[in-house]
Design a protein around this nucleic acid. Structure first.
Lengths: 244, 244
DNA sequence: AAGTGGTCTAGACCACTCA
DNA sequence: GAGTGGTCTAGACCACTTG
């Protein structure tokens, strides 16, 4: 079926390889192509979309750079599983001293679907009457609490999340399940001190120094997908920032 | 002159576009093509190197992704000036709350060419008898000290640095001057408290909570180019980590 | 040997910038 | 209108992986 070609080029000046990218991204988001699975080869896809092999290649390379695909010479092209150990670390900058991800347990202290607060509205670019899933979690490493976090997720991107009894605590996993493709993230770290409440939760002395983490993760097309505000007792961990 | 083509392909299986990239990168590093200046157009370069336009384009796009070039449709291709406000921020994660770079004054407390210490050797992957430029600086924002840093630079990459009376305090500027092309950087942040010496320098109380910054900046080909160890009094600033 | 992605080529045309 | 980079095409051949 040489469908897409006629459908799209007729109505758009957007470069062809970007239109193709969008169509492929949609198949990945919708899980029509499952995480971990192989997709058709370059030539077949090019014919299917009615574009040249070079154009299809450019679209595939773009998707690879966006971490949605992995291509391996002689093997094929595969949909990345965002829940895989390697990719799931992506936005988690609190690490073991050696840079490895901290193995952790998570306790959910609170979870609710609520109207946005004023701050949430600003951070997530939502309107006054939009709703968010608001979750408070405590993360443990080696049985000791180290991170207390308040998370807000736009209800529009994660519909019905509240009903899941066993929803993941990782934004990358949630996003994959809900067909949300994630892009860049941005975290501001400041130096804070434990309020009585926070101190109790983290089992530190009141006024103990903590890292305050203020993180926003955006979708691939630039819409805020998660706001997380956390208090972190670093102890024997470190915060890792990488610059490309 | 169709020089490079014959020279290189005869002796290497490295893909042609990478060999071309290397040759172009060398012209940039050596300042044969000056920062801010335009370079010849795609077609001329392709002829000059005896490769197809597509191959030359691929090399140029690679260099653009490595932040060495900027290409603008209708204008031309330009060598990036690493000292420009936009690029110079690159490895500086301590920022104003709005994410802007902090405007600062710098005081050099100490500078010397010395044999590597054991830690420096590990971090910079140097041998026992190599030398480093070791510099201690204090950075001020609004007249107040906020960052005390110890920097080590391999003497092999920055020969004669000690003789410059007015050397820059920014690694990106130094690197450009010495023909060193920079790639990724990695910074580990931990929570520390001010030792008496540090407290004096930063004008904070002894044992005041500080951020400890441990940063390594690598060259484009992966060799360590700078190790910086710093103590930071964040106060009204923040630490910004971005994730692609 | 068959199938995959990776490299390289040659050439046409489009979109943008500037004199 | 001349010159630049950006898109798109069609096809050849290479390098790697797997049965």
């Amino acid at each position: 079926m040489l469908n897409s070609r006629i459908m799209t080029t007729r109505f758009s000046n957007r470069p062809l390889y970007l239109q193709v990218r969008d169509a492929l991204a949609e198949r990945i988001a919708s899980r029509e192509w499952a995480p971990g699975g192989a997709i058709p080869n370059e030539g077949d896809l090019a014919r299917q979309f009615g574009v040249s092999a070079g154009t299809m290649r450019k679209a595939l390379e773009l998707l690879e750079s966006e971490r949605l695909l992995t291509r391996r010479q002689g093997r094929g092209t595969f949909v990345n599983d965002q829940a895989s150990e390697e990719l799931a670390i992506r936005y988690s900058n609190v690490r073991q001293p050696d840079g490895q991800h901290v193995s952790e347990n998570v306790e959910v202290l609170d979870a609710a679907l609520s109207p946005v607060s004023e701050v949430e509205g600003r951070r997530l670019r939502l309107r006054l009457h939009d709703k968010v899933h608001r979750i408070r979690r405590l993360r443990f490493s080696d049985g000791k609490p180290y991170l207390l976090e308040d998370v807000a997720l736009p209800a529009a991107l994660f519909p019905g999340l509240s009903e899941y009894r066993t929803a993941s605590h990782r934004i990358v996993v949630l996003a994959q399940q809900f067909g949300v493709l994630l892009g860049r993230g941005e975290e501001r770290v400041t130096l804070g001190s434990a309020s009585p409440d926070v101190a109790r939760a983290l089992q530190v002395k009141p006024a103990a120094p903590l890292l305050t983490l203020d993180r926003i993760v955006y979708t691939l097309d630039g819409r805020p997908a998660e706001w997380r505000f956390g208090h972190c007792h670093l102890a024997d961990k470190c915060y890792l920032a990488e610059t490309k």
